[in-house]
Design a protein around this nucleic acid. Structure first.
Length: 437
RNA sequence: CGGGGCGUAGCACAGCCUGGUAGUGCGCCUGCUUUGGGAGCAGGAGGUCGGAGGUUCGAAUCCUCUCGCCCCGACCA
């Protein structure tokens, strides 16, 4: 993308409404624009990041055996009246009427709908287990939206729903999602810690919030430093290996991690002092086993092997995808701007032509740009060097290729790594090799 | 939902108290100079002062209503 043709607007000044760093940077770097309270339009750079985050979430859900569907944003009130939540949900739910005065709503979540859909096809124990997910815009009419997309009213969410014949099966589904979540966040370069959450009336320990560690997070968290060094990618841990997955789960849940509300000082004392970490975090995911709550109320049952009807055990698993974009910035920024991890960057490389019009500079830049047709932003504007440096730092591209008359005359490209600030001067060939490594 | 605040150019703001027909900085456009970390000079464009009603010879300014947005608290992916 050539900046002279791009819609990548950056702001020098911070809009007055932005309080937290991710919100400020998202506005300044031209990722989003507010259109109403808690509702945002995603501009090209923001949209690309959102899509990359979405894709990682999707790949890891698929890998865990979940299947993608897409349910609508608008739902009929009837569905919710059946589960009883139409009344219970309160004002958080945005209610609408269609032209025939039928009661509709903009979905805040999809338990009722997915259960109803699944009910239409599942008749036998052979149809289970299944895990269905979708990535869709939700609307919750927050009393007080704030912090940009961190707590917007409209937000992009991945929500998965599992259906199992038995409690044991549901527990396995739950463990699959826990592993998938840890892998998902790790791929984005984030430290995520599953923390036991309130399970409500069902009890047990099958509800976890996933907290991203970031200094600017809202909630205070306590956790075992073991979480920081774990590598969850280990391919040998398969999703269908029930005992192995249980072993993994037991290990993870045996390590201490709790939000302030769930903090247990006695158990905390049991963590070796050197491994105790207290920090700030942002909730980006929540997994939950809720048994037959919706299968029962929505009338879902299937025939078991013995012919008797069984009401499936269900769980739901959410990731706040749009919130993740903000969380990624909270976890990866400095005074100059965003520092995108490679896995989610809108573009991998920014090519800074420090002297547009200089034959050597132009030629070198064009060559480099041609090598990365969809992964580079080429700053070919007639701007001063300082402007380009600042914009590139602000927008946070993982790599900057700085090309000025001095180096260009010698065929040299200066590569800067945004994350570390490290710089090297290389020939074009070596620079290409390094960027492709 | 309780409490507070703010709506004036793309952004950040002044002007309002004490009415006289709108200003500053950044950004934008043109020219010249400059050119490795947000340049200098000169010229220029851009606003139904959130909206409606009222008071007045005259309203950004005073009054009423209304819409929107932000902050603190209670609540949440």
């Amino acid at each position: 993308m050539r900046l002279t043709r791009a819609f990548l607007p950056t702001l020098k000044e911070t809009p007055a409404e932005a309080q937290i760093v991710s919100h400020r940077l998202m506005l300044r770097a031209g990722l989003i624009r507010q259109t109403s309270a808690g509702i945002y339009a995603w501009l090209p750079a923001g949209w690309r990041v959102l899509q990359r985050v979405t894709q990682i979430v999707r790949e890891e859900q698929d890998r865990a055996g979940a299947q993608e569907v897409l349910m609508p944003t608008i739902q009929s009130a009837e569905l919710w009246q059946r589960s009883g939540r139409y009344e219970d949900y309160g004002k958080e739910m945005l209610r609408l009427k269609d032209r025939h005065e039928r009661d509709m709503l903009f979905g805040p979540t999809n338990e009722e709908m997915i259960t109803d859909i699944f009910r239409g096809y599942a008749t036998s124990y052979r149809d289970l287990p299944r895990n269905l997910y979708h990535i869709q815009w939700k609307f919750r009419d927050e009393v007080r939206p704030r912090f940009g997309v961190m707590r917007g009213r409209e937000f992009l969410m991945k929500d998965a729903y599992s259906f199992d014949m038995t409690v044991e099966g549901a527990q396995h589904s739950y463990r699959q999602m826990m592993l998938a979540y840890l892998r998902t966040f790790q791929r984005m370069g984030l430290k995520a810690v599953p923390m036991r959450a309130d399970t409500g009336p069902i009890g047990g320990n099958l509800s976890h919030e996933f907290i991203i560690l970031a200094e600017t997070g809202e909630s205070t968290v306590f956790y075992d430093s073991e979480f920081e060094s774990r590598d969850w990618a280990d391919a040998s841990l398969g999703y269908d290996d029930v005992p192995a997955l249980q072993g993994f789960f037991d290990q993870v849940t045996s390590m201490y991690a709790a939000t302030e509300e769930m903090h247990d000082p006695a158990a905390w004392e049991g963590v070796p002092e050197a491994r105790r970490r207290e920090g700030k975090g942002i909730e980006v995911g929540h997994i939950f086993y809720f048994g037959q709550k919706y299968s029962a109320t929505m009338g879902l049952s299937v025939a078991g092997p013995d012919g008797a009807n069984v009401v499936p055990e269900m769980g739901s698993y959410g990731i706040g995808v749009s919130r993740l974009v903000a969380a990624l910035i909270e976890a990866n920024h400095d005074d100059a701007g965003i520092k995108w991890p490679d896995a989610v960057a809108p573009w991998k490389l920014a090519i800074l032509n420090l002297k547009v019009g200089d034959a050597a500079c132009d030629a070198l830049c064009e060559k480099l740009y041609a090598a990365f047709p969809d992964q580079a932003v080429y700053d070919d504007r007639a701007e001063r060097a300082g402007v380009k440096f600042n914009d590139a730092d602000l927008m946070g591209f993982p790599w900057q290729a700085i090309i000025g008359p001095r180096g260009a005359a010698a065929g040299k490209v200066e590569l800067k790594r945004r994350m570390t600030g490290e710089r090297v001067e290389l020939s074009l060939e070596d620079a290409l090799a390094k960027l492709n490594a």
